[in-house]
Write a protein that binds this DNA or RNA. Sequence first.
DNA 1: AGGCCCATGTAATCTGTTACATGATTCC
DNA 2: GGAATCATGTAACAGATTACATGGGCCT
Lengths: 188, 188
Amino acid sequence: MALRHAVLAALLDAELSGYQLAKSFDMGVANFWQALPQQVYAELSKLESDGLVAGREVIQETRPNKRLFKVTDEGLAELERFAAASAKPTMLRDDLVVKVQSSDLVDTRPVIDQLRKRADFARAKVELFESLLVKFRGERTEEEFLRDGERIGPYLTCLGGLVFERGHLEWCERIAGVLQARRDGAGK
Amino acid sequence: MALRHAVLAALLDAELSGYQLAKSFDMGVANFWQALPQQVYAELSKLESDGLVAGREVIQETRPNKRLFKVTDEGLAELERFAAASAKPTMLRDDLVVKVQSSDLVDTRPVIDQLRKRADFARAKVELFESLLVKFRGERTEEEFLRDGERIGPYLTCLGGLVFERGHLEWCERIAGVLQARRDGAGK
DNA sequence: AGGCCCATGTAATCTGTTACATGATTCC
DNA sequence: GGAATCATGTAACAGATTACATGGGCCT
């Protein structure tokens, strides 16, 4: 029961099709969750048959027809229950960290490469999130927006994504540097 | 094929029993991966039958007997291959973030509570990681240790855990503050 | 006497990933 | 003419979680 509530939360801001939802979950633009298209379609079916979302068909001439979904009152009540229930912290499981853990007994060249690629990726995400934040808050300062804004949820999760990616970036760069220095030093 | 390599990496530093491994994975003391005891036992069986780890029985008088495992040469070769293969970034999926995303349409009291509990948890982890780092590096400065230390993998992953938990802590405190301020403001 | 720690698992279920399938339209 | 985008799924598999099971020793 996890993706379920992420889908509901994503539909709070707009009526979306499975395809649109899937895209934002896939790329992590909806930076608060991640899922593949198949999962999204499957979850929407379940949510609809449980009455938590309602879909309506939109006929399109030039493109395939699509179904737009919105959260029902029952769906909102479900989210309410979910928010009130206690959540246990889920840790991240990252292959790259396992590789770093093993880095004394394993060739570090490919690990350094991966750290650098990861750093590039994180840098791109940081920039994306920063521009998203500006878009969300518009003319207002962050303080004003967070005080008076009518819809701040996406902004807050985006802040979370930013903090995470900045930390990750810092770490990747640092570790790549350390491992590289040891290569250079040991090579002599 | 994910836990597999985490177990191998954990066995690089010491010969451990399933129980000891399970405990460190469970509590995230081995802060580079997380798994339940059942998974660890199952994975050890598979690793042993694949010849990647070797177990030896240790008879104990006062406690149940146990089996200590160590990585074989084949296991090390497998880790080597793993480290060289490219890793795609896995995102974290955190219920609490979904709740924050929904926080404009849902009662924020329980969410604020959870953010504060999470912050306490993160603070404890930060302290744990900081003391672990001191233990690892001993008398040396961080710079010296990372340059000359013979085994730095666990130190580097611990640094990663620290960066992550510090960021998480900062975020939880900030968001709890924002949501609380909006409650106080709106209540008037 | 009751609860926690050591020590190891099995079985069922739930979630997530990979592979496959289809078909029209718009952009380069 | 070929690739990407829109639009929706099914089926098989891999990975993670929950529930259940056992049994002695140690601490309060």
